[in-house]
Design a protein around this nucleic acid. Structure first.
Lengths: 151, 151
DNA sequence: TATTTTAGTTGTATAATACAACTTGTTTGC
DNA sequence: GCAAACAAGTTGTATTATACAACTAAAATA
């Protein structure tokens, strides 16, 4: 086996990723100042804006989350009238989740805010650099997702 | 103002970062399978391994966390005998936090495990790509940190 | 039809975090 | 030199995100 302690880039990636992850809990910095939608809700609405309706199960599969987690997140969005649910016509167990107009407006607004934050965080980066970074992040995420899929 | 919706790289970065952040709560994938040390404890021990002792306040400043947060994290590490605290000699308010030998062994072991995870996640990446990615992550993190510093 | 499978909810637990209230020391200012 | 102000930490409380287990209800299957 290769000596992992002799790969400074790898070490730095490990360190920087864990530091970045820590920011996840740090709402004010990365989630936008005045938003009233959190990470989970944002991601769900974002997906529902593209494809709606989706069942709770489908959302959970898409994000590789436990159904119970998504169930609660949907409940929170529903309480705020950002999504609606209807019982599946052909299957009474299924809850079809629809994004509401208010939900669409919310997600558009929040996305705009978030893009402004990122634009300012990445001020000074060339388009080339941003494209490369986006690609690297995507590669890492897809790999993490594929690992997760194998339990 | 530039039209942010016309910058696909920026949009992708925004999306991939939020997706990656979500993994933060997903311990099994990124924190290593059999570890018994979580993100917060790992980062603290890692720092203490380099410079020890540090006061609770100093740790909080370093990580830009609330002192109460660090106080609890230290308590957890102390319960597991990975750190020790001594009252400051010149200032009875200060708690000097020392990493123990067990703490050092733990962090070395966990770091090795984590590097193996990252090595496998980044299998197929060239050294050049890893170096560029590390640099990009570091730039983003430093920028996030500097924003945070301005409250 | 009886059994099994599937969709979703609810109970419980954990990790990480912030803010506010509090205690205990240390400085400072008169 | 003492009272007031300040600083370091801890503890109480709340929030977000999550998983796993136990449960209910509906559908599929045998």
């Amino acid at each position: 086996m290769k000596d992992l302690n002799r790969d400074p880039a790898l070490e730095q990636i490990e360190h920087e990723v864990v530091m970045l992850l820590r920011r996840a809990d740090f709402k004010k910095t990365l989630d936008g100042a005045e938003n009233n939608l959190f990470r989970s809700g944002y991601l769900i609405l974002n997906l529902l804006q593209q494809t709606s309706p989706l069942a709770v199960r489908e959302l959970a599969d898409h994000f590789q989350l436990d159904v119970s987690t998504v169930s609660r997140q949907i409940k929170a969005l529903e309480n705020r009238h950002l999504v609606e649910r209807r019982i599946g016509e052909h299957d009474g167990r299924v809850n079809q989740i629809f994004i509401t107009d208010a939900g669409k407006r919310s997600v558009v607004k929040l996305k705009k805010e978030r893009l402004m934050v990122y634009d300012s965080l990445l001020a000074g980066w060339s388009e080339e650099e941003k494209a490369v970074f986006a690609d690297h992040l995507a590669r890492l995420n897809r790999k993490i997702e594929s690992r997760h899929r194998l339990h």
